[in-house]
Amino acid sequence: MKRTGRGFWRLMMALALALSLGMDAAMAEYADVVLNSQAEAQGVRPVIYPHWFHRIRFRCKVCHNELGFQMKVGANNIDMNKILDGKFCGMCHNGDVAWGTEFCDRCHSGLPGLKTGIRGGSKSTGPGEY
């Protein structure tokens, strides 16, 4: 118990709280992102962005450096016009690097009513502002 002081116990409690808060979304794959600030309002399904699928094919630096995606869900203000202009998703989803924008339903694949945010099981959702 020599190295186990107050800070440790506070940390344990914070961690336990964080874990139990994250438990309700324990089905989706770790780091799946829901994007629905505009999709449903425009009459299409919310976008499900799977980090795992993209990580197999691209390193983080491609999207978060070259393509300019900020590392915070909802911070990028993406809309379909920007994608069609070749920005954000449109840097790759142009029928050249990856499938083009005519395959609407591959990205707009979410259940109605989902809220924008990062999801996923296997102890993912931390308490923070991701």
Binding site: L11, G126, G128, Y130
Partner: peptide, 21 residues
């Protein structure tokens, strides 16, 4: 505590890279 709140290392660890457990 900052990391647990999603700052510093916590921007990725706990969201996309291995979690804080």
């Amino acid at each position: 505590m900052d990391i647990l709140a999603g700052k510093a290392c916590g921007q990725c660890h706990g969201a996309v890279s291995f979690p804080l457990t």
